[in-house]
């Protein structure tokens, strides 16, 4: 029972972590409060759904691997969308957080309406590949669903790739430089606007991957993103907005709390409990639980 509960927490954590990593990049690093982040997650979920429909119609023999393609497509769809969103809207609002919130909230509403109108007003589900349907029987009464194991694996793989991108590539270095000091980045020859655009696109792409994973846990509706956006912000703030490692640990913590509280209390009591806990922690550590200290 204990192990199973902890593992359920782990798969909630995976989605939260992917969402939060994207948001940590967009909000924590760039300072953009992107209220449409949840709808981007839904976009990733719909991209995965779309892939499954296409595969069913045209390559039924490849149905077992459609999900892999779906994840990649979800990432591309959301990051390309994010790129154009940044170029056409966000870039003009960088020093105006309230305007950014309103504008992205509007974008979120428009996206929801588009999903309703052009995809399906009611929840859609994706088929689960046969190899993901099974369970891993650990002992007589402990078994883990394969799909959840897969989600956790995907989350760790993505986090590792993001880490390698940010800390081992030239582009990643530029992202870190610009987020630490925009003005100075320009003054040493970095084209900040270009860096902004692909940083934002990366954050959005991560929301897309989160959405893709989400399809394995539940069905996707136009307003699916709404349920996750608040938790995602909590995770990012709790972890300390400048620390991606903090974001991951914070997602783990909150994902676990969520399932444990829900196990013992009702759903809304559980969320209230988490909020109280987070507020208490932020009272003592205003920069987040895992913020690091460096002389500026």
């Amino acid at each position: 029972m204990f192990a199973l509960q902890a593992f359920t927490g782990l798969s909630v954590f995976s989605i939260l972590m992917l969402m939060a990593l994207g948001l940590a990049i967009v909000f924590g690093l760039m300072g953009v409060i992107n209220m449409a982040h949840g709808e981007l997650m839904a976009m990733g979920a719909y991209a995965t759904y779309g892939t499954s429909v296409l595969f069913e119609a045209y390559f039924p023999s490849l149905m077992s691997i459609y999900f892999i393609v779906g994840v990649v497509l979800a990432f591309f769809a959301t990051s390309v969308f994010g790129y154009f969103l940044e170029r056409s809207l966000i870039q003009f609002l960088y020093k105006r957080p309230l305007d950014t919130m309103l504008a992205t909230w509007g974008v979120g509403l428009i996206l929801q309406q588009l999903y309703r109108q052009f995809i399906n007003p009611r929840p859609v589900e994706v088929p689960t590949a046969s190899w993901l349907q099974g369970v891993w029987q650990v002992s007589e009464d402990v078994s883990f669903p394969m799909s959840r194991i897969f989600i956790v694996g995907l989350a760790f793989l993505t986090a590792t790739l993001v880490y390698l991108f940010l800390y081992r590539t030239r582009r990643g270095l530029l992202i870190r430089a610009v987020t630490q000091n925009r003005g100075m980045s320009g003054a040493i020859g970095i084209n900040q606007k270009r860096v902004d655009a692909y940083t934002f696109a990366l954050g959005c792409g991560l929301a897309g991957i989160a959405g893709s994973s989400f399809t394995m846990l539940a069905s996707t509706a136009p307003d699916t993103g709404q349920a996750y956006i608040v938790d995602t912000f909590i995770v990012v703030v709790f972890g300390g907005v400048e620390s991606l490692l903090g974001t991951i640990m914070s997602a783990f913590f909150i994902g676990q709390m969520q399932t444990w509280f829900e196990f013992y209390l009702s759903g809304s009591m559980a969320r209230a409990g988490i909020l109280l806990l987070v507020i208490a922690v932020l009272y003592f550590r205003p920069n987040g639980l895992f913020a690091t200290k460096v002389r500026r």
């Binding site: 030239r170 870190r176 430089a177 630490q180 100075m184 690091t292 002389r295």
Partner: peptide
């Protein structure tokens, strides 16, 4: 850049 290493500050 406070969180970049000395080397990274130069490479950037």
């Amino acid at each position: 850049f406070p969180y970049l290493t000395v080397r990274e500050n130069i490479l950037a």
